[in-house]
Design a binder for these strands. Structure first.
Length: 617
RNA sequence: UGUCCGAUGGUGUAAUGGUAGCACAGAGGUCUUUGGAGCCUUUAGUCCAGGUUCAAAUCCUGGUCGGACAGCCA
């Protein structure tokens, strides 16, 4: 791990007072009432896509609660639909969760002994079956889910137990095998304002149901031929109580259970029971599952399980301006190559943010600031951007880099003049020290930092004007050199040789200070300048989110960097002074013609009040 | 003319019957060898109508507006 990413593990708000919200209030009250000895939450993604910042909100909530109340949060793959799930997603989820929670809540990250399932324990399906002498696993093993010792939880590890529970429901006359086609099942369900009608198969005998369900399991029927349904109430005002499907037939291999099963439980059946089996105390999900809660409770209650039972609580999912969040749309961006992949730095995925250079602590700070409620709002992406700048400003070293170089020659310096100047690594952190930056007669400055005919309030270089080269001299622009087409190609300047740090005129006040890189020492690098992916504040609301893709979301330039940046390693972050925050991309590992290649991603610009001023005109 | 849920500055949130506070964004200022950061100031809010109460953002009733739900997805 690099020196400059380490401090990012603990961010500013990680040490702030614990947040308070209606869910944490409930947890605290339950604890005070003695309902639970220990809080167990869970984060249950379906491995059918990469995790995005909406998941990050949920992760911070669930792991945050475990952390604040001394409990555990289980990472669980909600993998009950093999037709949509893949190991690639399982692996990315594990990596992303570890990254987000690492150094913050790792001691509360619930992995389980590898291979452990309800079938391998003999405690009658009691939720404590993971909590024997092997729990918790040694600290050193918790953080490495790839180890032989621990792994995340998988709903699919409960398939045997779930099947037993289904039999129990059948025997109680509370579930039946239904032969209705998918289309007819829909028709019989009715609509929100009209009751459904009973399936003609609703009154099969227990024996017949048991036989049919066993044959479903054995693979005697094709996909879609039959389902197992709960027998509740086809006239219920709640659609999800109208004899919901519990099991469906899918002759598909599963990424975790292989070819063992051809019937798979539905979410509603698997989820509440997975929670139960893991001893989850507070099952926290998003608002759209609110209408499912009666079913969640119905299943648990009708199985006559030993108490306590888990309870479901719902909060509002995250919506962000200038962002799409649905997995379907993100997948579409990936599949149609509108971005380079799930981890494209413009994606709102956790891996996208990581590659973009956003620290995990900034994502946590963001989650802290937006809070948790039941109100479906739209959060301004500026809140995220502020959290990112705030973290980065504190932890990241400064460097000098020029994105769009303009050469200047300092005519009163001798040919071959070279000197080392001391540059502060981080004004926010004196302990970060200083470094030497080479200075010479010819340097590059930013093209934007010179204007031949500047508007009012422009503080930078102009013909006949003065500006300070940061850490170096005050220079004066004597002459502008142009090519045949009239483009400015070079500036001839003179320096006030006494004006550098420690010199007689070091404290001279000049209006502007600009960054620079010595031409002879500059290192070339590809710099990818990212901007928001969408131009509309609510891409979803436009009806066609792809129509508002920002054509300028990526601009690539060849920049000139100070030579110390040659040592940068992937995921190392820097502030390029006056420009923004940048991170070395993994593509830097590639080599072109034997030459090491540096690729930086721009995480975010610095706040630019001049740009705002200029825009007013 | 279904069920469930929600509504506090522009945005996101706090106030749990007792001074409507915080953050982001905006405006202005200060400082500055980053037009960064910091610091200071400032604009702006309880959906509506009744009721209960000494006192209501909070409790009650009725509206209004918004969201979720009719996958063998999660």
């Amino acid at each position: 791990m690099s020196a400059n990413t380490k401090p990012s593990a603990a961010g500013r708000v990680d040490a702030a007072p614990a947040p308070s919200d209606f869910i944490r209030d409930i947890v605290a009250a339950d604890l005070a009432a003695g309902k639970h000895q220990r809080i167990v939450t869970r984060f249950p993604p379906e491995p059918n896509g990469y995790l995005h910042i909406g998941h990050a909100k949920s992760i911070c909530l669930n792991f945050g609660i475990a952390r604040e109340f001394g409990g555990v949060c289980n990472l669980r793959m909600d993998d009950t639909n093999p037709t949509k799930e893949e190991v690639e997603y399982v692996e990315s989820i594990i990596e992303d969760v570890n990254w987000l929670v690492g150094g913050w809540a790792d001691a509360h990250l619930g992995f389980k002994p590898k291979g452990r399932t309800p079938a391998t324990v003999s405690s009658e399906g009691r939720p404590d079956f993971y909590q024997g002498p092997v729990w918790p696993p040694p600290q050193s093993e918790i953080r490495n889910p790839q180890s032989e010792v621990v792994e995340p939880f998988y709903a699919s590890d409960y398939f045997d137990q779930l099947y037993e529970y289904a039999l129990r429901l059948i025997r109680k006359g509370l579930a039946y095998v239904c032969d209705l086609s998918p289309e007819d099942t829909d028709k019989f369900r009715g609509s929100p304002d009209h009751p459904g009608q009973d399936s003609p198969f609703r009154h099969r005998t227990v024996e017949e149901n048991l036989d049919l369900f066993a044959r479903m399991k054995r693979g005697e029927f094709p996909d879609g031929r039959r389902t197992l349904r709960a027998k509740i109430d086809m006239a219920s005002p709640n659609i999800w109580m109208r004899d919901p499907v519990l099991y469906r037939i899918r002759h598909t291999e599963h990424h975790h259970t292989g070819a063992t099963w051809c019937i798979y439980p539905m979410y509603d059946f698997a989820h509440c029971l997975s929670d139960y089996l893991e001893g989850i105390t507070h099952s926290i999900c998003t608002l759209e599952f609110e209408v499912h809660r009666p079913l969640y409770d119905w299943i648990l209650e009708n199985l006559d399980l030993p108490r306590p039972l888990p309870h479901q609580f719902e909060f509002a999912r995250l919506s962000l301006t200038y962002t799409v969040m649905s997995k379907r749309k993100l997948l579409q961006l990936v599949n149609e190559q509108l971005v380079t992949g799930w981890d494209d730095p413009r994606m709102p995925t956790i891996s996208g943010f990581r590659r973009r250079g956003v620290p995990a602590s900034a994502l946590r700070a963001f989650a802290y600031h937006i809070g948790v409620t039941k109100y479906n709002g739209l959060t301004d992406v500026a809140v995220l951007e502020h959290a990112v700048r705030d973290e980065l400003n504190r932890i990241v070293p400064r460097r000098l880099a020029v994105l769009r170089p303009l050469k200047i020659v300092i005519t009163n310096l001798p040919e071959g003049h070279i000197e080392d100047l001391a540059a502060v690594n981080n004004p926010e952190d004196p302990a970060a020290g200083a470094r030497a930056v080479p200075f010479s007669r010819e340097v590059f400055i930013e093209r934007d930092d010179f204007m031949e005919n500047p508007p009012a309030k422009y503080f930078r270089l102009r013909p006949g004007g003065e500006v300070r080269l940061k850490y170096a001299y005050v220079i004066k622009c004597d002459a502008v050199v142009k090519d045949a087409a009239g483009n400015v190609v070079e500036l001839r300047c003179t320096a006030d040789l006494d004006s550098k740090t420690g010199g007689a005129t070091a404290n001279r006040k000049v209006k502007g200070t600009i960054h620079w890189v010595s031409a002879a020492h500059a290192v070339d690098a590809e710099v990818r300048l990212y901007d928001r992916l969408f131009t509309a504040p609510e891409p979803d609301a436009t009806g066609d989110f792809k129509s508002c893709l920002n054509p300028h979301s990526l601009e690539v330039v060849t920049a000139k960097l100070e030579p110390s940046l040659r040592e940068a390693r992937p995921e190392q972050r820097y502030q390029f002074e006056r420009l923004g925050y940048f991170v070395l991309d993994k593509d830097s590992n590639e080599t072109t013609a034997g030459q090491p290649r540096l690729v930086f991603n721009r995480t975010i610009t610095l706040k630019d009040t001049w740009a705002k001023e200029a825009q007013k005109r």
